[in-house]
Design a protein around this nucleic acid. Sequence first.
DNA 1: TTGTGACTGACAGTCCGTC
DNA 2: TGACGGACTGTCAGTCACA
Lengths: 78, 78
Amino acid sequence: MDIRLLVGQNLRRLRQARGWSQEDLALTAGVDRTYVSGVERGVRNPTVMVLCQFGAALGVEAAVLILEEGRCIVDRKQ
Amino acid sequence: MDIRLLVGQNLRRLRQARGWSQEDLALTAGVDRTYVSGVERGVRNPTVMVLCQFGAALGVEAAVLILEEGRCIVDRKQ
DNA sequence: TTGTGACTGACAGTCCGTC
DNA sequence: TGACGGACTGTCAGTCACA
């Protein structure tokens, strides 16, 4: 599974869950509208800093964006 | 907290936990030794694909590398 | 063994569009 | 609203010599 496709799927799912357009996300994250489109389609290879911007815009940790579905982040026990 | 520093700390911690040199990791991940050095010091801003290569080399999910300490990934309940 | 500066080709990311 | 293209600038990937 190409990690770019995984990021794209996660980004789109989280964006749509908020009822946002690609442009809404782009403005909030401080990136270009066409760039959001490219990342969602898996044709772009974003840097960790951009991943962080997307995470901040969506109110989630950047790690969530490169996590496969069915897995999640929790506080480590102990 | 700059995400590049976070990635650097995680990368170094996981590498040293395996008793590897930067060159060991570089060879396994298929990148240059000096690039590993740069990422660990937080002066490089790697892409998600490079993050994935590091994760594969270290036998962890790429998401682990951009996760703050004290947090971990588990299978989602339900 | 690791840090660092300098370098080139490739690509991240923007801005203009059209469909 | 979103896919897609072209052209552009800045930055990243990847490498080297040297400390």
